[in-house]
């Protein structure tokens, strides 16, 4: 093909690029700028340039608490997710029937695609004081009276784990697919138990996937909005809801932008980290 034609063809990318540049990159640049501005109750913004909001975000005890709660919940959820995702991903990547594999992938993807509103509603029905979990525990005599599960940090971790699991399973499974089964057969023919083979052969080879899945899970957990709001209740302070409160409710765009930029930078670092370890297919 002639050089001129190549350039004509590559111009097809321009409209999509324009959309992303105009309605994602430009807005992000704008909030990066605003994050260095200062809020004023009358003028809304002073038009100055100072790192004051960032200092406040790490020095103010309230936001220290928000940051540490977010990091703690995200880390705990990530650890649990990895422990649960590994056996499931391994099962899916080694299942022989293509039909079963297809159904398992659909079953994994369905909750992911339902969106956070529906998933949170489902967990509220399970974990409420009059919910299924309490009804079952009362029924079998495990507890005397309903216990409070909803609106606790534990509830948030449980719900977040179910939100993150599909992402972790899909990421891990795509890495495990690339590990030839012959290596496991070799391990077993040397007399190792299946469990030992998994730990000594599969786990080391799947390590890039483990790192990537953990980074993605942590980033998603940190940015969660619906789960902390609905499952955690008003006392649960995490970064996602704080961004919304500052910008939409308090009209403090500069500080809200600062919180958003902190989330953005941590997410970016984690995403780069995960892509370095893995050429991602879908997540």
């Amino acid at each position: 093909m002639r050089e001129g034609r190549n350039w004509g063809g590559s111009a097809l990318v321009v409209p999509a690029l324009f959309l992303v540049a105009a309605f994602l990159l430009a807005p992000l640049a704008l909030i990066l700028r605003y994050s260095f501005d200062k809020y004023d109750p009358v003028k809304l913004m002073l038009g100055i340039f100072s790192p004051g909001n960032y200092v406040q975000a790490v020095a103010d005890p309230f936001y220290q608490n928000v940051l540490s709660t977010t990091a703690y919940i995200a880390a705990l959820s990530t650890v649990i997710v990895m422990l649960l995702a590994f056996p499931v991903a391994y099962y899916i990547s080694r299942v022989e029937s293509q039909r079963l594999r297809g159904w398992l992938i659909i079953l994994t993807m369905l909750p992911l695609l339902l969106g956070n509103a529906v998933r949170s509603a489902a967990w509220m029905i399970v974990m409420g004081t009059k919910g299924v979990a309490n009804a079952v525990m009362l029924g079998v005599g495990l507890i005397e009276e309903p216990i409070k599960i909803l609106y606790t940090p534990t509830a948030v971790v449980i719900a977040l784990v179910s939100v993150l699991l599909p992402f972790a399973i899909i990421t891990l499974q795509s890495v495990m697919d690339a590990i030839p089964t012959s290596l496991e057969e070799a391990g077993q023919s040397l007399g190792h138990s299946p469990l030992r083979t998994v730990f000594e052969v599969v786990l080391p080879l799947a390590m890039p996937g483990v790192v990537a899945a953990a980074a993605i899970s942590f980033a998603l957990a940190m940015n969660a909005y619906a789960t902390p709001v609905l499952i955690g209740g008003p006392t649960m302070k995490m970064m996602g809801p704080a961004v919304y409160d500052q910008i939409a409710k308090a009209n403090n765009w500069p500080f809200g932008s600062t919180l958003a930029c902190i989330l953005m930078v941590v997410t970016l670092v984690l995403t780069v980290l995960s892509t370095r370890f893995l050429s991602r297919k879908y997540f």
């Binding site: 590559s10 990159l25 940190m222 940015n223 958003a260």
Partner: peptide
């Protein structure tokens, strides 16, 4: 064309930018 991997990543970036951050940014914009 040169730089097409960068272009691809740019077009995929809406998937990686946290939804709450993107939502806030687009609203202010």
């Amino acid at each position: 064309f040169p730089g097409r991997e960068t272009i691809r990543q740019t077009l995929l970036s809406p998937m990686y930018v946290p939804a709450i951050v993107a939502g806030a940014a687009v609203y202010i914009y």
